[in-house]
Protein backbone atom coordinates (compact mmCIF):
# COMPACT_ATOMS: atom_id res chain seq x y z
CA UNK A 1 0.00 0.00 0.00
CA UNK A 2 2.74 2.45 0.90
CA UNK A 3 6.02 3.13 -0.80
CA UNK A 4 8.66 5.76 -0.43
CA UNK A 5 8.41 8.10 -3.32
CA UNK A 6 10.82 10.69 -4.46
CA UNK A 7 10.38 14.18 -3.12
CA UNK A 8 12.42 17.10 -4.29
CA UNK A 9 14.88 17.60 -1.52
CA UNK A 10 14.96 21.02 0.07
CA UNK A 11 17.81 20.60 2.49
CA UNK A 12 18.47 23.81 4.36
CA UNK A 13 22.21 23.44 4.89
CA UNK A 14 22.88 23.71 1.20
CA UNK A 15 23.36 27.44 1.00
CA UNK A 16 26.60 27.32 2.94
CA UNK A 17 26.10 25.64 6.28
CA UNK A 18 29.26 27.08 7.84
CA UNK A 19 27.96 30.62 7.63
CA UNK A 20 24.31 30.20 8.50
CA UNK A 21 23.36 30.00 12.10
CA UNK A 22 19.88 31.43 11.92
CA UNK A 23 17.05 29.11 10.97
CA UNK A 24 13.35 29.45 10.46
CA UNK A 25 11.00 26.86 11.86
CA UNK A 26 7.33 26.78 10.99
CA UNK A 27 5.08 25.48 13.74
CA UNK A 28 2.02 23.70 12.39
CA UNK A 29 -0.64 21.56 14.00
CA UNK A 30 -4.31 20.86 14.56
CA UNK A 31 -6.26 23.12 16.93
CA UNK A 32 -6.18 22.15 20.63
CA UNK A 33 -3.03 20.06 20.56
CA UNK A 34 -1.00 22.35 22.81
CA UNK A 35 0.78 24.04 19.95
CA UNK A 36 0.91 27.37 21.76
CA UNK A 37 2.27 25.65 24.86
CA UNK A 38 5.10 24.24 22.75
CA UNK A 39 5.58 27.68 21.21
CA UNK A 40 5.67 29.42 24.60
CA UNK A 41 7.92 26.79 26.13
CA UNK A 42 10.43 27.04 23.31
CA UNK A 43 10.50 30.82 22.91
CA UNK A 44 9.74 31.99 26.42
CA UNK A 45 9.03 35.70 26.44
CA UNK A 46 10.91 36.46 23.26
CA UNK A 47 7.94 36.68 20.93
CA UNK A 48 5.87 39.21 19.13
CA UNK A 49 2.58 39.08 17.35
CA UNK A 50 1.24 40.80 14.27
CA UNK A 51 -0.76 40.07 11.18
CA UNK A 52 0.14 38.03 8.19
CA UNK A 53 0.79 40.45 5.34
CA UNK A 54 -2.47 41.14 3.57
CA UNK A 55 -4.33 38.64 5.71
CA UNK A 56 -6.59 38.97 8.67
CA UNK A 57 -4.92 36.11 10.49
CA UNK A 58 -2.86 36.62 13.61
CA UNK A 59 0.75 35.64 13.35
CA UNK A 60 3.07 34.98 16.26
CA UNK A 61 6.80 34.79 15.99
CA UNK A 62 9.41 33.99 18.59
CA UNK A 63 13.09 33.22 18.82
CA UNK A 64 15.22 30.85 20.82
CA UNK A 65 18.85 29.87 20.94
CA UNK A 66 20.12 26.35 21.16
CA UNK A 67 23.65 25.04 20.74
CA UNK A 68 24.80 28.44 19.47
CA UNK A 69 22.21 28.59 16.77
CA UNK A 70 19.39 31.02 16.53
CA UNK A 71 15.92 29.81 15.61
CA UNK A 72 12.91 31.86 14.64
CA UNK A 73 9.74 29.98 15.35
CA UNK A 74 6.72 31.02 13.30
CA UNK A 75 3.43 29.91 14.82
CA UNK A 76 1.04 29.00 12.01
CA UNK A 77 -2.72 28.98 12.63
CA UNK A 78 -4.05 25.70 14.00
CA UNK A 79 -5.75 23.80 11.17
CA UNK A 80 -7.15 20.37 10.46
CA UNK A 81 -5.79 20.38 6.96
CA UNK A 82 -3.90 22.42 4.37
CA UNK A 83 -6.60 22.70 1.79
CA UNK A 84 -6.85 26.48 1.57
CA UNK A 85 -10.53 26.23 2.44
CA UNK A 86 -10.20 29.03 4.99
CA UNK A 87 -7.83 31.96 5.45
CA UNK A 88 -6.09 30.06 8.26
CA UNK A 89 -5.43 27.04 6.13
CA UNK A 90 -4.19 29.14 3.27
CA UNK A 91 -1.75 31.02 5.47
CA UNK A 92 -0.38 27.76 6.86
CA UNK A 93 -0.11 26.17 3.44
CA UNK A 94 1.52 29.17 1.77
CA UNK A 95 4.09 29.57 4.50
CA UNK A 96 5.12 25.93 4.48
CA UNK A 97 5.22 25.81 0.72
CA UNK A 98 6.48 29.17 -0.43
CA UNK A 99 8.34 30.76 2.47
CA UNK A 100 10.34 27.59 2.70
CA UNK A 101 11.06 27.33 6.41
CA UNK A 102 14.17 25.31 7.22
CA UNK A 103 12.04 22.91 9.20
CA UNK A 104 8.32 22.47 9.59
CA UNK A 105 7.59 21.28 13.10
CA UNK A 106 4.19 19.64 13.30
CA UNK A 107 2.68 19.36 16.77
CA UNK A 108 0.16 16.58 17.21
CA UNK A 109 -2.02 15.19 19.97
CA UNK A 110 -0.98 11.74 21.20
CA UNK A 111 -4.54 10.99 22.27
CA UNK A 112 -5.98 11.28 18.77
CA UNK A 113 -3.05 10.69 16.50
CA UNK A 114 -5.02 9.39 13.55
CA UNK A 115 -6.77 12.66 12.87
CA UNK A 116 -3.52 14.54 13.41
CA UNK A 117 -1.69 12.38 10.91
CA UNK A 118 -4.04 13.73 8.24
CA UNK A 119 -2.25 17.05 8.57
CA UNK A 120 1.20 15.48 8.99
CA UNK A 121 0.83 13.52 5.76
CA UNK A 122 -0.33 16.63 3.94
CA UNK A 123 2.71 18.55 5.17
CA UNK A 124 4.94 15.69 4.07
CA UNK A 125 3.54 16.04 0.57
CA UNK A 126 4.93 19.58 0.45
CA UNK A 127 8.27 19.32 2.17
CA UNK A 128 10.64 16.68 3.43
CA UNK A 129 12.12 18.84 6.20
CA UNK A 130 9.58 17.89 8.83
CA UNK A 131 9.84 17.00 12.50
CA UNK A 132 6.84 15.55 14.27
CA UNK A 133 6.27 16.45 17.91
CA UNK A 134 3.76 14.10 19.51
CA UNK A 135 2.51 16.23 22.37
CA UNK A 136 0.27 15.38 25.34
CA UNK A 137 2.07 12.09 25.91
CA UNK A 138 1.19 12.37 29.60
CA UNK A 139 -2.48 12.67 28.82
CA UNK A 140 -2.30 9.73 26.43
CA UNK A 141 -0.70 7.65 29.15
CA UNK A 142 -3.52 8.54 31.48
CA UNK A 143 -5.99 7.42 28.86
CA UNK A 144 -4.01 4.19 28.38
CA UNK A 145 -2.96 5.07 24.87
CA UNK A 146 0.56 4.01 24.00
CA UNK A 147 2.29 5.80 21.18
CA UNK A 148 5.41 4.11 19.88
CA UNK A 149 7.34 7.14 18.65
CA UNK A 150 10.15 5.05 17.17
CA UNK A 151 7.75 2.99 15.16
CA UNK A 152 6.03 6.17 14.09
CA UNK A 153 9.34 7.71 13.00
CA UNK A 154 10.03 4.58 11.00
CA UNK A 155 6.62 4.63 9.38
CA UNK A 156 6.73 8.31 8.52
CA UNK A 157 10.42 8.55 7.67
CA UNK A 158 10.94 11.68 9.76
CA UNK A 159 12.15 12.33 13.32
CA UNK A 160 9.42 11.98 15.93
CA UNK A 161 9.73 13.35 19.47
CA UNK A 162 7.24 12.63 22.21
CA UNK A 163 6.59 15.55 24.55
CA UNK A 164 4.45 16.72 27.42
CA UNK A 165 4.90 20.41 26.80
CA UNK A 166 2.88 21.47 29.82
CA UNK A 167 5.50 20.01 32.12
CA UNK A 168 8.34 20.75 29.73
CA UNK A 169 9.06 17.09 29.19
CA UNK A 170 10.84 16.16 25.95
CA UNK A 171 11.43 19.72 24.82
CA UNK A 172 15.20 19.52 25.17
CA UNK A 173 15.25 16.46 23.02
CA UNK A 174 13.06 18.29 20.54
CA UNK A 175 15.58 21.14 20.37
CA UNK A 176 18.40 18.66 19.88
CA UNK A 177 16.56 17.00 17.04
CA UNK A 178 15.90 20.35 15.39
CA UNK A 179 19.61 21.15 15.78
CA UNK A 180 20.67 17.82 14.30
CA UNK A 181 18.31 18.40 11.42
CA UNK A 182 19.69 21.82 10.47
CA UNK A 183 23.21 20.43 10.89
CA UNK A 184 22.38 17.83 8.31
CA UNK A 185 22.92 14.98 10.78
CA UNK A 186 19.41 13.72 10.21
CA UNK A 187 18.28 12.95 6.71
CA UNK A 188 14.62 12.31 6.25
CA UNK A 189 12.96 10.00 3.79
CA UNK A 190 9.33 10.90 4.17
CA UNK A 191 6.74 8.38 3.24
CA UNK A 192 4.12 9.87 1.06
CA UNK A 193 0.56 8.91 0.41
CA UNK A 194 0.06 6.79 -2.66
CA UNK A 195 -3.27 7.26 -4.35
CA UNK A 196 -5.25 4.94 -6.56
CA UNK A 197 -3.87 3.96 -9.95
CA UNK A 198 -5.92 6.37 -11.98
CA UNK A 199 -4.84 9.33 -9.88
CA UNK A 200 -1.23 8.24 -9.81
CA UNK A 201 -1.09 7.91 -13.56
CA UNK A 202 -2.57 11.37 -13.98
CA UNK A 203 -0.05 12.76 -11.53
CA UNK A 204 2.75 11.13 -13.46
CA UNK A 205 1.58 12.77 -16.66
CA UNK A 206 1.17 16.20 -15.16
CA UNK A 207 4.24 16.38 -12.93
CA UNK A 208 6.98 16.54 -15.62
CA UNK A 209 5.08 19.14 -17.61
CA UNK A 210 5.10 21.52 -14.67
CA UNK A 211 8.90 21.67 -14.60
CA UNK A 212 9.41 24.60 -16.94
CA UNK A 213 6.75 26.69 -15.27
CA UNK A 214 8.00 26.79 -11.72
CA UNK A 215 11.18 26.85 -9.70
CA UNK A 216 12.84 23.62 -8.77
CA UNK A 217 12.13 23.91 -5.09
CA UNK A 218 8.37 23.75 -5.59
CA UNK A 219 7.15 20.23 -5.03
CA UNK A 220 5.59 19.36 -8.35
CA UNK A 221 3.84 16.20 -7.25
CA UNK A 222 2.01 18.26 -4.68
CA UNK A 223 1.11 20.94 -7.23
CA UNK A 224 -0.13 18.26 -9.65
CA UNK A 225 -2.42 16.83 -6.97
CA UNK A 226 -3.83 20.26 -6.14
CA UNK A 227 -4.52 20.93 -9.82
CA UNK A 228 -6.35 17.62 -10.06
CA UNK A 229 -8.48 18.80 -7.15
CA UNK A 230 -9.26 21.98 -9.03
CA UNK A 231 -7.29 24.34 -6.79
CA UNK A 232 -6.13 26.49 -9.67
CA UNK A 233 -5.69 29.52 -7.46
CA UNK A 234 -2.53 27.95 -6.19
CA UNK A 235 -0.84 28.82 -9.48
CA UNK A 236 -1.22 32.50 -8.73
CA UNK A 237 1.08 32.02 -5.75
CA UNK A 238 3.81 30.11 -7.51
CA UNK A 239 6.55 32.10 -9.23
CA UNK A 240 6.20 31.42 -12.94
CA UNK A 241 9.85 31.59 -13.77
CA UNK A 242 11.62 28.27 -13.42
CA UNK A 243 14.82 30.02 -12.37
CA UNK A 244 13.26 32.22 -9.78
CA UNK A 245 14.64 31.88 -6.31
CA UNK A 246 14.65 34.11 -3.33
CA UNK A 247 17.02 34.32 -0.42
CA UNK A 248 15.92 32.14 2.41
CA UNK A 249 16.84 32.04 6.01
CA UNK A 250 16.76 35.77 6.28
CA UNK A 251 14.12 37.63 8.19
CA UNK A 252 14.21 41.31 7.62
CA UNK A 253 10.68 42.37 8.14
CA UNK A 254 7.22 40.94 8.07
CA UNK A 255 7.12 40.86 4.31
CA UNK A 256 10.24 38.78 4.03
CA UNK A 257 8.61 35.89 5.81
CA UNK A 258 5.62 35.58 3.62
CA UNK A 259 7.08 36.56 0.32
CA UNK A 260 3.93 36.29 -1.69
Amino acid sequence: MTVNCHIVSTEPGKDNPTVRNHFIIALAGNPNVGKSTVFNRLTGMKQHTGNWPGKTVIKAEGTFYHRNRRYTLVDLPGTYSLHAGSADEQVARDFICFSRPDITLVVSDATCLERNLNLVLQVLEITSQVVLCVNLMDEAKRKRIQVDTEKLAQELGIPVVGTAARSGQGLNRLKNVLGDMVDGKIVTSPRCVVYDQELESLVQQIEPRLAIYMPNWVNRRWVALRLLEGEFNLLNHIPHNALMDYPRGEIKEDGALCLL
Partner: peptide
Protein backbone atom coordinates in the same frame (compact mmCIF):
# COMPACT_ATOMS: atom_id res chain seq x y z
CA UNK B 1 -18.53 22.41 -2.21
CA UNK B 2 -16.20 23.62 0.53
CA UNK B 3 -18.31 22.21 3.36
CA UNK B 4 -17.86 18.73 2.02
CA UNK B 5 -14.13 19.17 2.28
CA UNK B 6 -14.42 20.51 5.82
CA UNK B 7 -16.41 17.50 6.92
CA UNK B 8 -13.91 15.16 5.29
CA UNK B 9 -11.00 16.98 6.94
CA UNK B 10 -12.62 16.50 10.33
CA UNK B 11 -12.34 12.78 9.78
Amino acid sequence: GPNRRRLLDLG
